[in-house]
Nucleic acid binder design. Structure first.
Lengths: 111, 111
DNA sequence: CATTATACATAGCATAACTATATATCAATT
DNA sequence: AATTGATATATAGTTATGCTATGTATAATG
């Protein structure tokens, strides 16, 4: 039972979880990858992404670790946790169910 | 340029606008129709629907009018406005673009 | 007579996403 | 040498949607 926006409210989460599930990634890279893969559609701002990553980490779905580059530059690589993997699976299913429901309403297949 | 939830944040609006564009409808009926058409998926609560209708009316996308039934019962029928129709068209396009973007990211068709 | 369905409404809360800003390093250009 | 733009992370504060809970009132059902 999901109403209106409740599910999609966190539509960013599946995207982030999916990307990180493919390979450990850091924030800036995620922004660039989302834009590249979506053909320029997604342009996550820092104010959206970093809080989202912190939220996912706090929820135990991803785990971050600092990596120091030469010169003192810092990156925080996130990898997905077991919990994150199962939640991702769940969210993908919910996303599909949501799409089905939207199509049922928006496409006049039924009366 | 749409990021994350920005577009889908108002995913209820297209649903409501679409239903009302098909025929003038009142709130309670909309709730029931959304549930029926979506095969039980959408279960809008009053606290979501009525404020949404008021919001859409205030924005000039729909227009409500009271209808008095026998016995003094009241219904507020909403019909879509010209502005609402064009916004609906717009939102439908945006929804399609969003779906494409989601699929591009979530389906590993690209590198 | 009591409960359920119909019908609308709003105050208040939670939270995701956005705006704006801050810090710091590195590479390239002027 | 200095400036710009790209790289890289962070957070405070705002907005707005959807949710919870509650209130009102009539009609139909048992």
């Amino acid at each position: 039972m999901v109403q209106g926006r409740e599910l999609i409210k966190g539509s960013a989460d599946p995207l982030l979880l999916y990307l990180i599930s493919q390979q450990p990634m850091y924030g800036y890279h995620i922004i660039k990858e989302l834009e590249r893969k979506s053909d320029g559609y997604f342009k996550f701002k820092e104010g959206t992404l970093y809080p989202a990553l912190h939220r996912l980490e706090k929820a135990g779905l991803i785990q971050g670790g600092w990596q120091i580059l030469q010169g003192g530059r810092q990156r925080k690589y996130y990898h997905i946790t077991d919990k994150g993997s199962s939640i991702l699976e769940e969210k993908r299913n919910q996303w599909q169910e949501f799409l089905v429901a939207m199509n049922l309403v928006l496409r006049p297949m039924n009366t």
